[in-house]
Computed example of a mutant assay.
Amino acid sequence: MEYEIVQGDIAAQSADALVNAAGTSLEMGSGVAGALRAEAGDELDREATAKGPVDLGGVAVTDAYDLEADYVIHAAAMPHYGDGRATEASIRDATQNTLETADDLECESLVLPALGCGVAGFDLEEGAKIIGETIGSYAPETLEDVRLIAYSHEEYETIRGATGETGSTA
């Protein structure tokens, strides 16, 4: 499956589903979760927290509230307990489960961040490779437009280099 690397604020994106880089508790703190919560409103946090906890690598779906999307898929690449560190397996599982869930919801478009590579401490270059490989090997049912988003220019360049994909600013 082909996908695009974009630079921008995930909370400003328009898609059928936006992805939250979640921890297993689904409590929405800082980073991607904070940006989505700030734009969508506290209802997003309340609904997400009510659906947690989920298994490491698991996902939960909520309404997107005031975001330009139908759904937020909360992908738990990071444990909220223990050391809080993402692993290769948790990133791969969270990405795979996100893609499958988006297809189950009949989404055509999806925007996801570098899961597990922020506060979860996984190396961005290695994480982007895992995410890119997982997306690249996925056979979609309804997904047509998948965007891997980076907030800063530096993150964008790292993800582009790690995946070999071209990109754009959004």
Score class of each variant (00 low, 15 high):
residue 1 M to Y: 13
residue 1 M to F: 10
residue 1 M to W: 11
residue 3 Y to L: 09
residue 4 E to K: 11
residue 5 I to P: 02
residue 6 V to C: 12
residue 8 G to Y: 10
residue 8 G to I: 15
residue 8 G to M: 13
residue 14 S to L: 13
residue 15 A to E: 12
residue 18 L to W: 06
residue 19 V to Y: 01
residue 21 A to T: 09
residue 24 T to P: 02
residue 25 S to P: 03
residue 26 L to V: 00
residue 27 E to L: 09
residue 27 E to Y: 08
residue 28 M to E: 06
residue 28 M to L: 10
residue 29 G to P: 00
residue 30 S to E: 13
residue 30 S to A: 13
residue 31 G to H: 10
residue 33 A to P: 07
residue 33 A to F: 05
residue 36 L to S: 10
residue 36 L to T: 05
residue 38 A to R: 15
residue 39 E to Q: 15
residue 40 A to P: 06
residue 41 G to E: 05
residue 41 G to F: 09
residue 43 E to A: 10
residue 44 L to V: 02
residue 46 R to C: 02
residue 46 R to A: 07
residue 49 T to I: 06
residue 49 T to K: 12
residue 49 T to F: 11
residue 51 K to C: 01
residue 52 G to P: 04
residue 53 P to V: 01
residue 54 V to A: 04
residue 55 D to W: 05
residue 57 G to A: 03
residue 61 V to C: 04
residue 62 T to P: 00
residue 65 Y to I: 08
residue 66 D to I: 07
residue 67 L to W: 03
residue 69 A to W: 05
residue 72 V to G: 03
residue 73 I to F: 05
residue 74 H to N: 10
residue 77 A to K: 15
residue 77 A to H: 12
residue 77 A to C: 12
residue 78 M to F: 08
residue 80 H to V: 08
residue 80 H to L: 12
residue 81 Y to K: 13
residue 81 Y to L: 09
residue 85 R to C: 09
residue 85 R to M: 12
residue 86 A to V: 11
residue 86 A to I: 11
residue 87 T to Y: 06
residue 88 E to D: 07
residue 89 A to S: 11
residue 90 S to R: 07
residue 91 I to E: 07
residue 91 I to K: 04
residue 96 Q to E: 09
residue 97 N to W: 00
residue 99 L to Y: 04
residue 103 D to Y: 05
residue 104 D to A: 13
residue 105 L to R: 02
residue 105 L to S: 06
residue 106 E to M: 05
residue 108 E to V: 06
residue 110 L to Y: 04
residue 110 L to N: 03
residue 111 V to T: 08
residue 113 P to E: 11
residue 113 P to M: 07
residue 114 A to M: 13
residue 114 A to V: 13
residue 114 A to T: 13
residue 115 L to Q: 10
residue 118 G to A: 09
residue 118 G to Y: 09
residue 119 V to Y: 11
residue 122 F to K: 02
residue 124 L to E: 03
residue 125 E to K: 13
residue 127 G to Y: 00
residue 130 I to F: 01
residue 130 I to E: 01
residue 131 I to G: 00
residue 131 I to T: 00
residue 132 G to F: 00
residue 132 G to K: 00
residue 135 I to K: 02
residue 137 S to V: 02
residue 137 S to N: 02
residue 137 S to Y: 05
residue 139 A to F: 03
residue 141 E to V: 01
residue 143 L to M: 04
residue 144 E to V: 00
residue 145 D to E: 06
residue 146 V to R: 03
residue 148 L to S: 02
residue 152 S to N: 11
residue 156 Y to T: 14
residue 157 E to L: 15
residue 158 T to F: 14
residue 158 T to I: 15
residue 160 R to W: 14
residue 162 A to N: 11
residue 164 G to I: 01
residue 166 T to F: 02
residue 168 S to T: 12
